[in-house]
Amino acid sequence: MTGPTPRRVDPDVDLRVRGDRGELRAHPAAVLGVVAAGGALGALARAGVQAAFPHRPTGFPWATLGVNVTGCLLIGALMAVVGAGRTRPLTRPFLGVGVLGGFTTFSTYVVDAHQAAVGGAPGTALAYLAATLVAALVAVWVGDAAAGRLLRRAARADAVPPAGDGGRGAR
């Protein structure tokens, strides 16, 4: 392939991105190790939030909604930083695949909605499904936009040459 690297779609691993393609073969133990460790940390954080804000089977699962929306805000910001090339090779596997992937959950999202519907609260189920989806997508966008703005500001600050040396001097 001679063109530019296609833009990443999958933050966990995108085989069209050169770094992602080679990382598992290059450092299998490190990559899988940080994904496992990050996943454990993320899952424990999620369990903590869910234990602090329990809900009835037919109630609105606010805790999981909060977890999923927060995780989406953070992945938007994280991937903006990763995309700017300002991270180490294991940052995305640890924080993106591990911590945020383990923190957020799709299975609990659909199973809670199913339980609410089965328990006689289909309206709650539908509202929960829609509210999470919309809030999560807005959160990714906000995280990406906010981090992008900060990164551009930082890049502009880096680009300003120190007076008198034409920008080549040691800093």
Binding site: P11, R46, A47, N68, G71, G76, L100, G101, S107
Partner: peptide, 25 residues
Amino acid sequence: LATGFCGALTTYSTFGYETLRLARD
């Protein structure tokens, strides 16, 4: 199995990012 395994096997953050990425592309 539920909180640990299924919770970490599935992900909302990756799903959300991918959906937004496709839309923005």
